[in-house]
Computed example of a mutant assay.
Amino acid sequence: MSATIAAGNAPRHPNPPLFGWLSRDGQVGAAILHSRPAPLGLFGLAAADAAELVAVLNNEGRKVDYVNGPVDVVRAFAEAAQRGSEAVDHQLLYRLSGLVAPRTTAGRARLAQHSDREVLEDFTKVFAYEDTSVPFDEVGERLSYNGFWLWEVDGQPVSVASLSRSVAGIVRVGLVATPPEHRGHGYAAAVTHHVSQVALEAGNREVLLFTERSNPTSNGIYQRLGYEVVEEQIQMRLSATHQDIRTP
């Protein structure tokens, strides 16, 4: 999201994007990013830092409805905020260790074009932000820098994957989707392998991706391709009053 904001394609929202960092011994030790409708992202913070961050955000008058990051840090943030909280998403962060080719399957990869927009929107609509009142053209944003690839069989798109903008040699695989009628043939693995190879050939030093912790199919695919779990992350919705934290 930080690269999207830098490119001038941030979602339009009354609250401007917020960047922050935590300095330790004169060096940046952690960072935050809040660009609605995306949740507040916590990067490198420890659970012990949560109360101080909540105080800073309150002093700035910054309203946070969703927060995302490592499980213990997000729970500490929700507790320090003294608001009700509900876990709405639980994911695993993966890093590519060594790319492994998947089993051979029919088809080939093709860089998506603007003429493919309708197909891309149909394939990836499951990833739409929950806050639909805030317009953000995710498909258009990724098409603007040639970030989508389709896997086609006999000219028919059957799966899709994308790459984020590269930041400091780090890129993320995302929006991997295969319609139900095309699943079970290895297309998702094939297109994910392709975009991962593209990322490496572009000179990126880190290739990351997220997947739902509860989805054994996608976790199995990524692990077989050479991705390894870095950490568990959770997203929580915060309410107006203090209640017990609920987790899945």
Rank of each mutant, 00 (worst) to 15 (best):
S144C: 04
R142S: 08
L40K: 02
G107S: 02
S85C: 12
E138R: 11
E118C: 05
T124F: 02
P39G: 00
G147H: 01
A78I: 00
Y66S: 11
R108E: 07
V71R: 11
G84E: 03
L53H: 03
F127D: 09
G61F: 00
L92V: 14
T132Q: 15
A51L: 02
L99R: 07
E79T: 14
E141A: 12
L53M: 02
A112P: 07
S35F: 10
V126H: 13
Y66V: 06
N58T: 04
A31T: 15
T132F: 12
L96R: 09
H90K: 13
S35H: 13
A55M: 06
H114F: 12
S85V: 07
L40N: 04
V126Q: 15
T105V: 15
G98W: 07
A50V: 00
A87S: 12
D116V: 04
V73A: 05
G98F: 08
A109F: 09
D89C: 09
R62H: 11
P135H: 04
F148V: 07
L42E: 05
T132S: 15
A78H: 03
A55T: 10
G29D: 09
G69S: 00
D122V: 08
T132E: 15
A78M: 01
S35T: 14
F148E: 00
L99Q: 04
L143D: 05
F43Q: 14
V64P: 06
G41A: 09
D49A: 06
A38T: 05
E121K: 04
L120S: 06
E138M: 14
K63Q: 11
E121W: 02
V119H: 08
F148A: 04
A51Q: 03
S115C: 05
R142I: 10
G44S: 04
V88S: 05
T132P: 10
Q113C: 12
L92G: 10
V67H: 01
A51K: 01
A38M: 05
V139K: 04
A109N: 03
V100E: 14
V139H: 06
Y129E: 15
G69Y: 00
R83S: 03
K63E: 11
V28L: 13
V73K: 01
L96M: 07
V67S: 01
V74G: 06
D65R: 10
H90L: 12
A55I: 03
Q91R: 15
T104E: 13
R103L: 15
V134P: 04
E60W: 08
V139I: 15
V64A: 05
V119A: 09
V139T: 14
A76T: 01
R36H: 08
D89W: 11
G147F: 00
R83Q: 03
A109S: 05
Y129P: 13
F127N: 07
L96T: 09
A46G: 14
L92P: 06
V67Q: 00
Y129M: 14
G140P: 08
H90F: 11
A47V: 04
F127P: 05
A109D: 02
R36V: 06
A87L: 10
T105A: 15
V67E: 01
L53G: 06
N68M: 12
H90N: 13
F123M: 04
R142N: 12
